[in-house]
């Protein structure tokens, strides 16, 4: 064991602890976890299966996007804003624990939530909506949607670092719901009037939904445009995060 490897190993163990803590957090506040999980799944069951028979597979892609979008925005946005206001991060800074562990823990929570949402929706789609996909497509949908939460984790993080805990849920809802609708997550973009259709490509969830639709075989084009767009959005939101991060460090100094 070289002297250098020691801090890295401790660092990783510490990250694992952060992830474990996040999991405990979710387990111990079921009043938050259960509704957050059920909401998008219920939404899909009503609008994707009951109301629009025949469109279950298309809407699986868009409503699953809606689900992971919410999981990422709320875990980061509201979670970080609340814990920051509680002085929790000031305390962590006083300990040897690495600060990025906060982000890694939150990411783990968001990814776990997203997985539960996506897999539950897939199960509903298959058994109630008669959706049939190849194994690689079921797994691909999960993989694309988990990886694709990157820009939304960053957006949530940025907002969480900036906003007060009272403002966070309200602001995030007002970002989340209109963005979901205008990106065509509830109603396909092609059903919008022309001028509204033109807006969708400027919103990040649209591109994630396009990728999800690509996985289930509802899009023929080249998916790299959408990947690139999501990376660009991630870059833009990283700037937001950096500003917020500096502000937090300055305030707790």
């Amino acid at each position: 064991m070289t002297p250098n490897s020691m801090p890295m190993r401790r660092r990783l163990v510490s990250y694992a602890h952060f992830m474990h803590c996040q999991w405990l957090n979710l387990l111990r506040v079921p009043a938050y976890s259960i509704p957050t999980l059920l909401f998008p799944i219920m939404f899909y069951a009503f609008f994707g299966i009951l109301m629009n028979p025949g469109a279950a597979s298309y809407l699986l892609a868009t409503f699953a996007t809606f689900g992971v979008l919410g999981a990422a925005l709320f875990a980061f946005g509201v979670g970080i804003a609340t814990e920051r206001a509680q002085g929790w991060y000031t305390l962590i800074r006083a300990t040897p624990a690495p600060l990025p562990g906060i982000v890694i823990g939150k990411w783990f929570g968001a990814a776990l939530f997203s997985s539960v949402i996506v897999v539950s929706m897939c199960a509903i789609a298959a058994f109630l909506g008669d959706v049939r996909l190849e194994q690689v497509q079921w797994w691909g949908l999960l993989a694309v949607l988990i990886a694709g939460t990157l820009p939304f984790c960053l957006l949530g993080l940025g907002l969480g670092l900036m906003l007060s805990p009272n403002a966070a849920p309200a602001v995030i809802n007002i970002v989340y719901l209109p963005m979901a609708f205008l990106s065509g997550l509830w109603v396909p973009v092609s059903q919008f009037p022309g001028w509204l259709q033109a807006l969708a490509p400027w919103l990040p969830p649209y591109h994630l939904a396009e990728l999800a639709l690509h996985v289930i075989g509802a899009r023929a084009g080249d998916p790299w445009v959408n990947v690139l767009a999501l990376l660009m959005f991630s870059l833009a939101f990283s700037v937001l995060v950096m500003i917020g991060w500096r502000r937090m460090l300055a305030m707790t100094k």
């Binding site: 474990h20 999991w23 405990l24 387990l27 776990l112 997985s115 539960v116 897999v119 897939c122 199960a123 298959a126 049939r132 996909l133 190849e134 194994q135 079921w138 797994w139 999960l142």
Partner: peptide, 22 residues
């Protein structure tokens, strides 16, 4: 809690494997 997490992951993976293909 770790065992619970492990079980959750197993359930998710098993569900995905159980989903029907065309």
């Amino acid at each position: 809690s770790i065992i619970g997490l492990f079980l959750l992951v197993v359930v998710l993976v098993a569900t995905l494997f159980a989903l029907p293909g065309p």
